[in-house]
Nucleic acid binder design. Structure first.
Lengths: 202, 202
DNA sequence: ACAGTTGGAGAGTAGCACTATCCAATATTG
DNA sequence: CAATATTGGATAGTGCTACTCTCCAACTGT
């Protein structure tokens, strides 16, 4: 498979494929001559993954690079992989955000071992911003959110397939990113559903 | 309150406040002379809201403008407001995405009245991208996600306070946007928690 | 032999969110 | 009341990201 077929197969513009190759987001093909290289199914897969992370996950290319590095790092443990994925995901917390308050919240749920994820900073930043506009969640609602989050997280980690370590890592990392839009889309649709059924004449 | 105090109060750079005023994201102050204007608490609040939507919600300014318009539209019904908010939220589905598959999924949950939200396009795009990289959710997992989404959505709509219509609309629209990062942060922290407690030596 | 395609590199572009500079008209201070 | 600082407003410029365009010599298929 040559480069233009790779582009056609995935629907990605040729110029963009070349750009990704230059940026190292897709590995180079096997050169068969000075001006020819051969690509295979792994390139198709990787290219689709990059596009999914960008278009669905909304990641900037720099974050895609980090996520792919975590995927490729291989047998470095799942926990590291998930932490790396989280650290690479945008947007990071605004600089200067602490984590004390978020930690207190998390501990009140009895969750442990969350000390090193930057999601804590995001949580705290979100809470502070809500306070600032007067829309902070009450404890009950926060609980509801936490329970829901725990439920989906449990599905996330229990669904990890047996198999080569590289596949497992990819599953975790990519799943973390790609399932977020899924969850958000479902929440919005559910909101609409509830609004409509609540006010039948609305 | 003059412009520089508004900037100091909110921590937003003066040049940025001016920029938002020019863009109409924050309403102009009451002019007291050719080179002076007076700002008040509503300006502080609006400015904080803009920053929250940008920094926490990750919205581009154009989307912020649309969301604010929905907020300000006033007594136009809640359902319209929520639809407007959804339509304004990025990223929209990639152009050319259908909704048939998403509709089938949603109907299998018994959800109705979701025909007009662009979250359907996002759902379908997410499912298709997952398929393309071979990581599509099985029906059970999708169910788990849908149940969790419905749970938080129920909390979202039941928490809407009584009060002036404008406040209700703001609550819905802003809540839709600002609670997303909260949910995602909690999910990530929960994942980490589960991983750590699952493999105590990991 | 020769049009067409390829891999590769460099420069150019478009959109976004600010940020810096300038200005004349006030305000404030000594 | 003079000197200095600040204000609102407009224009232009910056830095970043993610492409996209153009060029080119080396090859390929016919």
């Amino acid at each position: 498979m040559r480069i233009s077929e790779l582009a056609r197969e995935t629907g990605v513009p040729l110029a963009t494929v070349k750009f990704y190759l230059r940026e190292g987001l897709v590995p180079a093909g096997r050169a068969t001559s000075a001006t020819q290289a051969e690509y295979d199914a792994t390139h198709v897969r990787r290219l689709r993954l990059v596009r999914a992370l960008v278009e669905i996950g909304g990641l900037p290319l720099a974050a895609v690079r980090d996520v792919l590095a975590a995927v490729d790092a291989g047998p470095d443990l799942s926990m590291t992989a998930i932490g790396t994925a989280h650290a690479a995901l945008p947007p990071g917390p605004p600089p200067g955000t602490g984590t004390e308050r978020a930690l207190a919240v998390v501990e009140s749920f009895g969750w442990s071992g969350a000390g090193q994820t930057n999601a804590l900073g995001r949580l705290q930043a979100a809470l502070e911003a809500m306070d600032a506009v007067g829309l902070a969640p009450d404890p009950d609602r926060l609980r509801t959110y936490a329970d829901a989050a725990l439920t989906v997280a449990a599905a996330d980690v229990s669904d990890v397939p047996a198999g080569p370590v590289a596949d497992v890592v990819e599953y975790i990392v990519v799943g973390t990113v790609l399932y977020e839009p899924l969850l958000l889309a479902l929440r919005r649709i559910a909101q609409q559903h509830l609004f409509v059924t609540r006010r039948p004449e609305g």
